[in-house]
């Protein structure tokens, strides 16, 4: 970027780098999770190169892992897509939260920032947007954090896949897939309604395990969401 084009350019670039730096503390959590997800992806017989291409296309570790696992177990395409997308529905909340701050940006910016939207980029930048003095440059900060996250994620995932395909099958590393989801599921339980939401979804999954094509998983999740919402409504009365 040219320095001659004035302070505006320099300050945008500075804000971008500031966003990147703000992401750095999260490396400690993202890198191991990328590695472990990569190892799990490798257990579904996907080459590191294909896996990386898929991960660029579907920029969501959990959705990618769900899809690959369901494909491997012969689940029909529609159910696979539906299950994997359900995992990502939470992004609607982030989208709603960021929308007012992205309102005046061009479509190109909105598309770019939407693609890059991750839990980590959101967490790092949302407080920036709430400070009115950052209104003009907030999206550069977000871009910095989001790009740092993207690069970190893709490279640690790739490394995990390379390691994963070279480890012996006798280690039963396929079991890292359910363990990874377990490690993601448990911290989402924060209070009584979410606990009952999780328990009822789990129980419903067992009860509906006889249903074909793993459709039971989707129905069970909807049951769980319903139970959680009902308990929440009652509590707030």
């Amino acid at each position: 970027m040219s320095v001659r084009s004035g302070n505006q350019t320099i300050s945008k670039w500075d804000v971008f780098l500031k966003g990147m730096r703000a992401f750095m503390p999260l490396l400690v959590g993202v890198v191991p999770f990328g590695l472990i997800t990569g190892i799990a992806v490798a257990q579904t017989n996907i080459s590191p190169l294909d896996g990386t291409m898929m991960s660029v296309l579907v920029y969501s570790g959990a959705a990618l892992l769900v899809a690959l696992q369901l494909i491997q177990s012969g689940t029909p395409a529609m159910i696979t897509i539906l299950s994997a997308l359900m995992v990502n529905l939470r992004f609607i909340m982030y989208s709603a939260s960021l929308a007012p701050h992205f309102q005046n940006l061009s479509s190109r910016w909105k598309i770019l920032l939407s693609y890059l939207l991750s839990d980590q980029a959101y967490a790092v930048s949302i407080s920036q947007f709430e400070d009115p003095s950052n209104q003009k440059t907030g999206h550069w900060y977000f871009l910095g954090a989001a790009v740092a996250m993207w690069l970190t994620w893709q490279s640690s995932l790739f490394l995990g896949m390379v390691v994963g395909i070279n480890l012996p099958t006798s280690w039963s590393l396929d079991f890292t897939v359910p363990l990874t989801f377990l490690a993601l599921a448990v911290p989402t339980i924060k209070d009584k309604p979410s606990l009952f939401s999780a328990l009822s979804a789990g129980l419903a999954t067992v009860l509906m395990s006889g249903l074909p094509f793993k459709i039971g998983v989707v129905i069970a999740a909807i049951v769980g969401i319903g139970i959680g919402a009902i308990m929440d409504e009652r509590r707030s009365l």
């Binding site: 995992v87 609607i92 599921a185 939401s197 328990l199 979804a201 395990s209 999740a221 969401i225 139970i227």
Partner: peptide, 16 residues
Amino acid sequence: AFRFIPASMLSALVIS
């Protein structure tokens, strides 16, 4: 209600 999507979807997946 959205708040409960991760807890219930991930639990259903783990059990499955």
